[in-house]
Design a protein around this nucleic acid. Structure first.
Length: 470
RNA sequence: GUUCCCAUCGUCUAGCGGUUAGGACGCGGCCCUCUCAAGGCUGAAACCGGGGUUCAAUUCCCCGUGGGAGCACCA
């Protein structure tokens, strides 16, 4: 197969904000398809809106992509830098009679729309300069360049996700290609860039579906090849309404800070709108192997944090202990002020990790649940732990201590000692274990007690236990 | 308003004319158990409504209803 026969995909965000969850999914699908087919995945920054585009947003998007593990091929393309080429195409269209100059003023157009709205019609440009002689325009008056779009027949978008979507040409107006200051509009820029970059597949959010019809008109006017389109249903918030900041339209970094793993995000976002039978756990390598355009769903999906949590718990559990320690350390160092773990603290965390990771849904939960491991000294009891350490329990703890002190400081031996002590006193293991747990961790629940005692070490454990023996 | 898209358990979805409508998350119960998880078993839970087409519609068509997106010299 030749290079040119392979698909060329692109992700084309506008740098007006963070990379949010919807954009991340669009990027993921493009990336997966490119990697699945052995094609190319390009990144184009659509920064033609000088007012709203910022370098910070560009950096945020790039960082978000990197965190998500979505690597793009080649250097990113900046759309604004290509304005000259866009104008060239507009001029070609003008020369070919496929575009014309429109001298209508902003006020004029606003008035036109007002009337259309009043009449209950669709608001669109009425083509008032389409066939008018440009010489009728006042000397030196500003003008925009508009496409001379077909007025009859229909434009059909052959969408891989939605099927054929038809637009009556009579419904579409002559869109602006070049603004009065000569700068290209998004509609023109997208088409020209996709063509120049050799894009074969345009996979993007369904909010662009209507644009596809209009862009097709430009493509046809230029006689360029039509890319394969695929419009992805949008992601809604948990309540079905548009995704807002409050319920998940957050920067992907926010998900990182909440303690979600990139692998989780890829798996979750993939399943939001794409399926492979009954499969739920789909690691990225498997996703690349399986991904296709046919299995993308048509309906909008909602963000479900419960499912995200469940999936994240799974990926945390299967992540290597060493990796998790590194993640936790990085997480703590990002805190304000940063918390730096000593070697001893790291060693304890690593030793205890098998038990710790079993019960964390996020990295945040993991570090919170493991705090007793990487901090020293007597515990401050939370409410539930305090209840477990009443006078009676403290006496019990004091009585059990000698038995523990006498054994080897390893999980099985400690457990055996505690069990023997409990049985001798006619108690159940839990009655002895709970006060121990409370004194050791400051909480009523924790990873397996005796393993934790072993991870903590004899000295540190005894300091904590003795503090609550009276 | 207008153009376009969508519609299976609460949520994500499987289904591609004939199924006891399946799985996952969440929820309930049981088991396991030093707590909490995890895990295993198990229960409740869905085809938006109305017309067609067909021997047969969740599935195909139309209408309605509901949700969403677009309608800029924004992208």
């Amino acid at each position: 197969m030749t290079q040119s026969a392979k698909p060329v995909l692109r992700f084309a965000p506008s740098p007006t904000g963070m990379l949010h969850i919807g954009g991340a999914r669009t990027a993921l699908f493009n990336w997966l398809y490119a990697r699945h087919t052995g094609g190319t995945f390009l990144l184009r920054i659509e920064d033609t809106d000088k007012e709203r585009s910022t370098p910070e947003a560009v950096a945020a998007i790039l960082n978000g992509m990197r965190w998500m593990g979505l690597d793009w091929d080649g250097r990113e393309v900046f759309q604004a830098a290509r304005a000259g080429r866009h104008q060239e195409v507009a001029q070609a269209l003008l020369a070919a009679g496929r575009a014309y100059r429109c001298y209508a003023t902003a006020e004029e157009l606003t008035a036109m729309r007002e009337e259309q709205k009043k009449a209950g019609q669709q608001m669109r440009y009425d083509g008032r300069w389409r066939d008018r002689d440009p010489r009728e325009a006042p000397d030196g008056a500003p003008f925009v360049v508009r496409l001379r779009a077909d007025t009859e027949g229909e434009t059909i978008v052959h969408d891989q996700v939605l099927g054929d979507v038809r637009f009556a040409n009579a419904q579409m107006d002559d869109m602006v290609l070049l603004r009065s200051d000569g700068s290209p509009t998004y509609m023109l820029a997208v088409v020209v860039d996709d063509f120049d970059m050799g894009i074969t597949h345009v996979i993007r959010g369904a909010d662009h579906l209507n644009n596809a019809g209009r862009q097709l008109q430009i493509i046809n006017a230029m006689g360029w090849p039509v890319p394969v389109y695929g419009h992805l249903p949008l992601i809604n918030g948990p309540d079905g309404a548009k995704l807002s900041k409050r319920h998940g339209a957050l920067a992907v970094e926010a998900y990182r800070d909440m303690g979600y793993l990139p692998e989780t995000m890829r798996n979750y976002l993939l399943r939001l709108g794409w399926s492979h039978g009954d499969d739920e756990i789909i690691p990225t390598a498997q996703a690349i192997e399986w991904f296709n355009l046919e299995s993308i769903g048509k309906s909008a999906a909602r963000m479900d944090f419960k499912k995200l949590d469940n999936l994240n718990g799974h990926y945390i559990r299967i992540t290597a202990d060493e990796t998790l320690v590194a993640e936790a350390v990085a997480f703590l160092e990002r805190e304000n002020p940063p918390r730096i773990l000593s070697d001893k603290a790291r060693a304890r965390l690593l030793a205890a990790m098998p038990g710790v990771k079993e019960r964390a849904k996020t990295l945040l939960e993991l570090i919170q649940g493991a705090e007793f491991l990487y901090t020293d000294g007597v515990r401050v009891l939370d409410e539930a732990a305090a209840k477990l350490l009443g006078p009676e329990a403290r006496a019990l703890l004091a009585a059990a201590l000698p038995a523990l002190e006498a054994t080897d400081w390893c999980g099985p031996a400690l457990e055996a000692a505690a069990r023997a002590h409990a049985e001798a006193g006619g108690l159940k293991l839990g009655q002895v274990a709970q006060p121990l747990r409370a004194a050791l961790t400051g909480k009523a629940s924790s990873p397996p007690l005796f393993e934790m005692m072993a991870s903590l070490g004899r000295e540190e454990s005894l300091i904590r236990l003795r503090a609550y023996t009276a």
